[in-house]
Design a protein around this nucleic acid. Structure first.
Length: 227
DNA sequence: GACCAGGCACATC
DNA sequence: GATGTGCATGGT
């Protein structure tokens, strides 16, 4: 398609509404407890969720989906249990560092304290942990602790870049600012919108996309060209 | 067998 | 600040 040709430029909120109509309520993230969500956020780094599920199930079977139990776990056992999620040496270390931080001052494992904490301050503290980058920190903040942050991931980058709305090489902070400045600061909206982006990414907008059935194909620079 | 998947840390320029 | 590389499994 030629660059001079005009295409509708939807606002993020329009896209969110369109995806709401397409997917209905999603009730994300897949995890039974906030702690399971946090563990999943670390294990899913650059890894297919199906592999993470195997690791989570193994941890659950050993009774390790609990902060104190995980902190006390034998690192070798931990590495074995999370092996299916890949990068298991790194991720075992990251989980242990994270859970020690969780149990240490000032939270002492209290989810209430973490929920009440100042969002920006808590985010900084998470980012200071080895193995917790911006996406993992924001996923924990939003999906485990109900803080109003907008999560950016590979799907977000790919989808909005293909739509022609953001630059393919935009930084995490650039993309987050792009969304936050165009949306009301609503925790439930951020939660649902990111969930929709992941569903859209999984169903239609992988590296080899299936644009034909994508609900956004009408807006997309790549729309209808691939199947 | 190659490519891909809901990152991150670290080295180097 | 940008760019390149290692980390590892399981599905397609």
């Amino acid at each position: 398609m030629k660059k001079t040709e005009k295409r509708p430029q939807p606002a993020p909120l329009d896209i969110h509404r369109l995806l709401s109509a397409h997917f209905g309520p999603l009730h994300w993230w897949p995890g039974e407890t906030p702690f399971e969500v946090m563990v999943g956020a670390i294990l899913t780094q650059n890894t297919a969720w199906t592999n993470v599920e195997k690791a989570i199930a193994a941890l659950k079977a050993e009774g390790l989906l609990d902060p104190a139990a995980l902190a006390a776990a034998d690192p070798d056992l931990l590495r074995r249990l999370i092996r299916p999620s890949g990068y298991y040496n790194q991720k075992a270390e990251r989980l242990l560092l994270f859970v020690r931080w969780l149990l240490d001052k000032p939270w002492r494992g209290s989810l209430d304290a973490l929920r009440r904490a100042d969002t920006a301050d808590l985010r900084e503290r998470l980012l200071a942990l080895k193995g917790i980058g911006p996406e993992t920190a924001d996923s924990i903040l939003l999906y485990a602790l109900d803080h109003p942050v907008f999560v950016i991931d590979a799907y977000t980058r790919r989808i909005f870049s293909r739509l022609g709305l953001t630059a393919p090489d935009a930084t995490y902070a650039d993309l987050q600012e792009w969304f936050v400045s165009r949306l009301p600061a609503d925790r439930a909206l951020f939660n649902e919108f990111h969930a929709q982006i992941v569903y859209l990414g999984k169903d239609y907008c992988r590296k080899e996309p299936r644009c034909g059935e994508c609900p956004l194909s009408g807006f997309c620079a790549d729309g209808g060209r691939r199947n």
